[in-house]
Write a protein that binds this DNA or RNA. Structure first.
Lengths: 340, 340
DNA sequence: TTGTACGCGTTATCAC
DNA sequence: GTGATAACGCGTACAA
């Protein structure tokens, strides 16, 4: 019997050894039954199963996986697992993981490179089989030895500073382009871009798509239009604005709403068309509805998870780069001509 | 040297044994250095550290924890980790976990009892030290043996069908009561309740608070008022409605918006006051702003995590039941008199 | 069909 | 200060 003193951690759990001695068989036989391996008499099987039942035995996966070398475990790392998009992506990863019997760790970095590294390495120390990472900007060489040691890695939504890992992106550039083309088709010619950190990957993509659409239409771009702030939005000559994040869409809408409010009192209203990147639950109920560009984060998570699991189950081949579409959802806030 | 063939899983990782032989010391000495135990010459320490550096050694936590019996790992289980509240709660758990060096698994049940059990037991098989669970309705006896074996468990937002575990709740009943008192103070007397599954815990709590407030005001309640559907909201005589979930708040607002639209065309508008349970990012930008009752999900997660970690680190004592406040946020959709 | 012996990578107990 | 050696709970040759 297992009569070690296990500190104050409750009743010690029964092990296979305990099951074996209770069933009067050898350890290996219990192992066979537990793993459904052939070559055990129905009679013996029954005895073992009985002992398992009696003892409330549950196999220790940690031990099992120390032996087999795999943990059937994935890690998900993003800026903030509570952010709607990252949470949805995490759920997507979880869903494909569950289908294959994998569990997933979730971790948030708050955009801090050191925390990302700490988290990733902690997960590798736990010997996760794979990692889905929404990488912070910067290099990711710290992962090279882990990948070499067999940890699969897929990057999501942002390309990593590292070669040799699959990447799943959203066509943010195309989304921005579609949004700006849409605004131009409404007659807008002075279009702005609003975001917090312009040096972030998404900002750069969006500004790229924006510039592409403007250039294609032969429209000039004033540098000040792409460095707007919510407060000074109305001091700028832009008649339309693309917002790079939910947060800045909200800020723009608030700024415009309060301005409209005070200006209405003075008998003058200036409307600015708004397209936001990232959808909202209430987007269709506000008036006018918020026109947005968005992507299916859960789908991106599922694709990343699939890719990861495929690598884990031994698929070799060249590094893949998948780009999923973004979608323009017109709801009213961008569907009117400029108000000069 | 470690010359086993490790399948196709990349270069085998260096182990303590490898470090030891490279540094020309015994295994135990490496262990001492790695764990910062006293009793090692600075000279030896340096040699070991050098070998660790050279080999890129990283301790295998799985093996370590097989020995020590703890995994420094928590599990978080909720209906849907992508839901805003649960995601925030998960993040709260993660934050307190990180401070103590714990990692957290996240899992979603979609409200399915079988999946909850499967997830919880899978996590226990991985020997998580503790579990934070938003339980589905039903009993949770399957956890009793695990708890007895030393797995700590804290339930969140819904009480479990099980004794002997801490619970962290939100004062949903009080929130509903406050909302109804508020509506009554505006002059409303026929107030409804709208939700999907009326048998869920939150619905019951909210209806309880609702009934309490109505009774306290001496107001009669027609049974049909608490079994509304979004479609038939306007066929009902209620002048105000409390919605039990974000989803149903949205449904009610949509139903009222379209009704208002068509009725305005006919020159008649009927307004219904709305209070929703659960906040929205855009709640203040819709007109009128959406009045809601909400709670701080991240804080609930942190409290649950703290409680759990305290149990894990050996705090004994009676089962605790913590109830965190809910808050009424008036924004306009409920701040007007009934429109008879 | 069943059992024995050993190894996974680490910590822990004792000697030296 | 340092080092054999035995665990931890399980999988896996290979033998019986």
């Amino acid at each position: 019997m297992n009569n070690q003193v296990h500190a104050m951690r409750g009743i010690p759990r029964p092990t296979m050894k305990d099951v074996a001695s209770r069933a009067g068989v050898a350890l290996k036989t219990v192992s066979r039954v537990v793993n459904g391996e052939p070559g055990v008499t129905p009679e013996t099987t029954k005895r073992v199963l009985g002992a398992i039942q009696d003892l409330g035995f549950r196999r220790n996966e940690s031990a099992r996986l120390l032996r087999t070398g795999r943990t059937a475990t994935l890690g998900f790392i993003a800026d903030d697992c509570a952010d709607p998009d990252y949470a949805a992506a995490c759920r997507g990863v979880e869903d494909v993981a569950r289908d294959r019997g994998f569990l997933v760790f979730a971790g948030s970095t708050d955009g801090d490179a050191a925390r990302e590294e700490g988290l990733a390495l902690a997960l590798c120390a736990r010997r996760v089989d794979g990692l889905v990472i929404v990488p912070v900007n910067g290099d990711h060489e710290y992962l090279a030895p882990e990948i070499e040691a067999g940890v699969a890695a897929v990057f999501m939504l942002r390309p990593p500073g590292l070669d040799g890992a699959d990447v799943v992106l959203a066509d943010e550039r195309g989304g921005a382009k579609a949004a700006v083309v849409h605004l131009i088709s409404q007659g807008h010619r002075r279009i702005g871009f609003l975001d917090g950190d312009l040096s972030g990957y998404r900002s750069r993509q969006l500004v790229g798509g924006y510039a592409e659409a403007m250039a294609a239409a032969g429209l000039p771009v004033d540098p000040s239009w792409t460095t707007l702030s919510p407060q000074r939005l109305l001091d700028s000559p832009v008649t339309a604005v693309l917002c790079g994040s939910r947060e800045h869409t909200l800020r723009a809408l608030r700024a415009l709403a309060t301005a409209e409010h005070t200006q209405t009192a003075r008998g003058r209203t200036r409307r600015v068309a708004v397209v936001g990147f990232g959808d909202f639950e209430l987007a269709d109920l506000i008036s006018p509805g918020v026109t947005v560009v968005s992507y299916d984060a859960a789908e991106i998570g599922r694709v990343a998870g699939e890719l990861l699991l495929r690598r884990i189950t031994g698929e070799n081949g060249l590094t893949r780069r998948v780009e999923l579409p973004t979608r323009l959802v017109p709801r009213g806030s961008a569907e009117f001509p400029p108000d000069e």
